[in-house]
């Protein structure tokens, strides 16, 4: 067991966990940040996506300890002063979910993409989001939401 500090959503939290325990497991089961989802545990579905220093990362593939030096942002950390981030707002406006289980991963992947690329083409969005599964098949609306967000004046700017 290791003792380390994580910087999650702007707060420093002390964690006591095995050095092998994944960031996903620590977020969900020790920090009760359950917005980050388990879908496969193997990097194949994107449900567990979080931002590490602004980049979309599969939290099921990295150990929590290895993330100790990064700025971690989960879905719970996107809202600022009660205001949704542009990507969150775009997903809500586009109704880009059915069961919603993939939604946090989708939003974080899109946030990371729009951080890197301000006006992605459809092909670039598809390529960047290909690792995120939506079993409900909401892809057309998710594409629409990402495009809406990319047109938003403050897209991806917050984090």
């Amino acid at each position: 067991m290791g003792d380390f500090v994580l910087n999650v959503n702007g707060a420093h939290v002390r964690v006591n966990a095995s050095s092998e325990e994944t960031l996903l497991s620590v977020l969900r089961n020790r920090l009760n940040l359950t917005g980050t989802k388990y879908g496969c545990g193997e990097g194949q579905c994107g449900a567990c996506t979080v931002l590490l220093d602004g980049r979309a990362t599969r939290s099921c593939l990295v150990s929590a300890e290895s993330a100790a030096h990064a700025k971690i942002v989960t879905i719970e950390g996107l809202e600022q002063d009660g205001k949704l981030s542009p990507v969150q707002q775009a997903f809500l406006d586009a109704g880009a979910f059915q069961c919603g289980y993939c939604t946090s991963g989708m939003i974080l992947s899109a946030t990371s993409l729009l951080h890197e690329r301000h006006n992605p083409t459809e092909e670039q969005i598809v390529e960047a989001m290909e690792g995120n599964l939506c079993r409900c098949g909401t892809y057309p609306r998710i594409l629409d939401a990402v495009k809406r967000a990319s047109r938003s004046p403050v897209q991806g700017a917050s984090r």
Binding site: T34, T36, L84, L92, G95, F97, G100, T103, S104
Partner: peptide, 9 residues
């Protein structure tokens, strides 16, 4: 719907 884009649900 808001609870699904904020991870609250």
């Amino acid at each position: 719907g808001r609870d699904f884009v904020t991870g609250k649900h």
